[in-house]
Design a protein around this nucleic acid. Sequence first.
DNA 1: ACTTATGCATAAGATATTTATGTATTCTTT
DNA 2: AAAGAATACATAAATATCTTATGCATAAGT
Lengths: 123, 123
Amino acid sequence: MHKFFMYIFEVMANSKLYKGSLNTIILKLLEEQGKMYGYEITQKVKALTKGELHITEGALYPALHKLEAGGLLDVEVVKVDNRLRKYYKLTEAGEKETVNRLAELEEFIRSMQQLVNPNWSID
Amino acid sequence: MHKFFMYIFEVMANSKLYKGSLNTIILKLLEEQGKMYGYEITQKVKALTKGELHITEGALYPALHKLEAGGLLDVEVVKVDNRLRKYYKLTEAGEKETVNRLAELEEFIRSMQQLVNPNWSID
DNA sequence: ACTTATGCATAAGATATTTATGTATTCTTT
DNA sequence: AAAGAATACATAAATATCTTATGCATAAGT
């Protein structure tokens, strides 16, 4: 792709990822997909959100390591085409935590809609 | 209220405020209400979200000061019952910025729903 | 050959929040 | 009347989460 268009795309794709949502996104994707590796997650998020949300590697990899350290994820290292892939999947604890995080996120979204879209609220 | 029940309430009300959303909440409330003071904002958010979202003072006051310093808010100090109130309202720049922030937030919510609620997505 | 894409990683810096205090007045309950 | 709770502001230290920058290495495209 030409550099100019890449620049344009960069600017367009600069939609904010609200802090705290990354872990929930990771957990949810793993719940759906079974297992994924880091790079795959970044691409999947781009695809699902049509380029709106951009997961940076500097955020993703530390997050994966932390989730693993916290016992929510298991890793399996695989070599494909002479390159490493680290496949992550939910542990049992991870599955339970995913339910909680999703409930929290949905609650947050509901709350935000009450604030932002007050015609839905009672008062 | 008894300390035990306050504790219980504290725990219950511990729903996460995703980082980055506070400024947008402030701007949106001011857009709706015209003018508000800090303490009023904390109470309004509690009321609108039925206790789900809890804006801490340690986050709110610095945020208000920064929005003011950035030219998005104007202040008016009023003495009521021998106590100070600092009423904030949107400047013209603040009104414009509110539109942008709300659009960003709605875009974020849309993206999250695509991720969390994939039955709405195309693929 | 050179660039882009794939795939991992980490460190430094920025930023937004929580937690912990602090001050002071008024209202409510015992 | 005393004590606690609510009202109203504020700030500093600690923590968390992210961006930006950088690094390494292989494969694929141009």
